[in-house]
Nucleic acid binder design. Structure first.
Lengths: 267, 267
DNA sequence: GGATGTGAAGTCGTTCACAGCG
DNA sequence: CGCTGTGAACGACTTCACATCC
């Protein structure tokens, strides 16, 4: 995915699996909640339940960090909060810029989850001159002409892109050129970046499409036998997804998985 | 396994790996762009580049759907758009409700990427009476008292939760009880749902935390040798992550991965 | 010739089950 | 005894490399 992790010959124990890293924030959240309730210790079983994973996975994950538990007892909540925070780099604070202050950008600017985790919104940047100077979530929007200056002056290394897809790559290039090395991309485009820069993407419509896939399968499960016949019907009533959609099929035979219908997307 | 099309086994709609399903929307997006430029065919190499994956993976992914390419030529763009759309269930339209019309909910309501993919925002729901009737993105907000009625009348099976974390589980329970079987959760909580209900979560702060992890590691890579000493320094200047962070670690020796420092969270 | 489709090999991640320790 | 920490089995996904077919 995003700039596949370097296949470093894994120096010593510095090889925490990606999958584990992705779950650390989850554990941290659960632990923080426990901490607020002044719970002193948790077992892997309890914590796993709170984080929504199974306990074997959790123990394995923690084993990559070190031996932070006590056999027969469990984990010290405060201590673990600190260790995970440190591992994630949250013990320092990260200035972040958000580029593209539309609906989504504005929502992100006001999102409380950032500040509470050591992320500080250092600047909001938008290309629209009409936005310049206007405060969003208490922070004045700056014009994108000043992007490079803002990045370097604040020592920003993390950028959030919430622009339209069409300009996302340019914005990305400028961010990278100015020194940003981690990007969170909300624009529905594939960004290409040089080695050493990490990109993570969040695509709202992709998530819905994945849900739709499973949803469709559920519907078909009740009528297993009818599935075969249904395939033909569905194709015939296809509404079309892309821009222009007008059925029409040339005579070639296409072979699907099995009883598939050879219909084609029209021009 | 049998070559080409089998009759009964494997290749039904079943058996498509999750990882593949998650990439189908990516391919679809790239294909749609090609379609708009009236490109008739693509090779796996070209399409893979456009989607940001490697070509072997793409071909393997497509092989789960069927044999939709032509050797020596590539894939028919229009045909593939249709096949993937159908596989994802996008040839039908999915009414969606968004619950929690704050900053984020409002941004989602206005997000163009939904409508363009066969998702229709059937209703916006919020618990605040002051919001009721007010139009957001052209759709009037309805009060959450009517949640059940809205779901059942519109036959909604997909719900988006954009409420504060505190009420997300209750909202989820009501959605499920009313018939929703797929949920996209933006609230930073683990939702528990009965079997048969799918939940996908999008957590903005988690993504940033993952980036921070890698960012921190990049910084440490340049000064490999200093890493050891740095751990102590970092700990000393830890700003504190949770709410109440009162460490107070007992004097026991804790062993980290390697030369870990047993320092503790400062007050 | 040229690109697909796919076994086989390789890598990564999860789960099991139990030894080890408090 | 209870719970962590972990080798080993297992399973899922990725990559390789090439036979296959247009």
């Amino acid at each position: 995915m995003a700039t596949g992790r370097t296949h470093r010959p894994a120096t010593r124990s510095r090889g925490i699996p990606e999958a584990t890293v992705a779950r650390l924030p989850l554990y941290l959240r659960a632990l923080t909640a426990l901490s607020e309730r002044s719970v002193p210790t948790v077992s892997s079983e309890e914590l796993a339940a709170a984080a929504g994973v199974n306990s074997a996975k959790l123990r394995k994950d923690f084993s990559y960090l070190g031996s932070y538990g006590t056999r027969g007892v469990g984990y010290d909540v405060e201590y673990l909060v600190y260790q995970i925070s440190r591992e994630l780099g949250l013990t320092q604070d990260w200035p972040v810029v958000i580029v593209g202050i539309g609906n989504l950008g504005a929502a992100l600017a006001g999102y409380g989850g950032f500040a509470s985790r050591g992320f500080r919104v250092a600047a909001l940047i938008d290309a629209d001159p009409a936005m310049t100077g206007r405060p969003v979530a208490g922070i004045p929007v700056q014009h994108s002409d000043d992007l490079e200056k803002i990045i370097s002056e604040d020592g920003v290394s993390i950028g959030v892109i919430a622009t339209p897809a069409g300009v996302a790559q340019q914005v990305c290039d400028r961010l990278v050129a100015a020194g940003v090395t981690s990007i969170l991309n909300f624009a529905p485009t594939v960004l290409s970046v040089p080695d050493g820069v990490d990109v993570r993407k969040v695509d709202l419509s992709i998530e819905l499409q994945i849900l739709a896939f499973h949803e469709q399968r559920k519907a078909g499960e009740e009528a297993e036998a009818e599935a075969e016949a249904a395939a033909g019907v569905v194709a015939a009533s296809a509404p079309g997804v892309g821009a222009a959609a007008t059925p029409g099929r040339k005579g070639t035979d296409r072979k699907g998985p099995d009883g598939d219908v050879p219909a084609v997307m029209p021009a």
